[in-house]
Design a protein around this nucleic acid. Sequence first.
DNA 1: CTAGGAATTGAACGTACGTTCACCTAACTT
DNA 2: AAGTTAGGTGAACGTACGTTCAATTCCTAG
Lengths: 201, 201
Amino acid sequence: MARKTGSHSDITGPRVRSAARSLIARHGFAAVTMRQIAREVGVQAGALYLYTPDKQTLLFDLMKSHMDELLEAVSSVDLSGPPERALEAFARFHIAFHLDRAEAVFVAYMELRNLTEDNFAVIEDQRKTYENLLERILQRGRASGVFAVHDTKLATMALIAMLTGLTTWYREGGRLDRGDIQDMYWDMVRKAVGADAALSA
Amino acid sequence: MARKTGSHSDITGPRVRSAARSLIARHGFAAVTMRQIAREVGVQAGALYLYTPDKQTLLFDLMKSHMDELLEAVSSVDLSGPPERALEAFARFHIAFHLDRAEAVFVAYMELRNLTEDNFAVIEDQRKTYENLLERILQRGRASGVFAVHDTKLATMALIAMLTGLTTWYREGGRLDRGDIQDMYWDMVRKAVGADAALSA
DNA sequence: CTAGGAATTGAACGTACGTTCACCTAACTT
DNA sequence: AAGTTAGGTGAACGTACGTTCAATTCCTAG
């Protein structure tokens, strides 16, 4: 036996990435074997190497394309308005984006230490770029007096951690709907940085 | 060659746990080998099995004793006062405790998925117990009107994520000292839940 | 000073890993 | 209808894993 009916690179490639993402999110990169990924895709382990040169690159590509998507998506969010508005836009974007991609986010945050030095540097740089968007909003808000933040770097890390944390407990079809979650998180973010109340759309 | 001068179970045991904790925090449980741990301790791999029945139990014991310590330590924090006071006590305790044990915390939060089902249930239960302490404070505060929190469960997760996140960026001897960090995080926590300002000791 | 147990070695066991490769076959081109 | 090739198999490679255990050495008690 060899090639099965209806097999196509266009189909298998994405399926490999999807299976890898899912398994890595559940069990961790080091704990997942190429044979497990292959089984999930319905293919032999050797076939995976038509789609990635090696396991490390598979992880890196997963994380890289996630960060690319994140930066691409956030680039169309308007963060140029008044700081309170920009912060709300950022927070709501962050939550919505992360709710849609819980597995990818989980991988991107948990598997940093399994990247080679070079690969780590690339992802870390992208992450910094993203976090800087938030920090600049906080800086503007502090400068104009609407935010009461002692240290914008620490506040940035605190807010990112809080917002990203939702991927650890959020499950599709749970008690809370996405809109509620966005509203409640935004409420906490807004108050945490001391933005004055009530500035809806 | 066999036993080296000055070797003692009382010394090697803790060193095994410490080396394991350190390596697992840096590289992840699945990526760390028994031989690496042994090398760090200065011992052969076989000797580790005098101190743990197997690798999985080593991880579990690390996490279990960390959670035991956490619950033991928090039990002597007075959380019975007014909600704002209790929240401050909890936040400051959480930060101080976690700053002292960055590696253990990192392991306890990142390696949950590498526990067997039974072991996971134990740790998860302890974690829930701890989080419930915070949630009860939030509930009391909301009931008495000093906290403005829409959903205490979500707020609990958000605050824990924010506070625990500091272990991902805090490094000994960095720009900020521990007191500053406590003050700034407490400030954000207090405002996030809508506790009225200025209620220092 | 000597026996006996505690601590540790070093080699070995079976298993499973990531990766390679010669071969095969279904589908597209002409 | 034949030829080409992308897509895939399945077996094999060397390595490294977790774990076991007989043998060895150091320490302690009497």
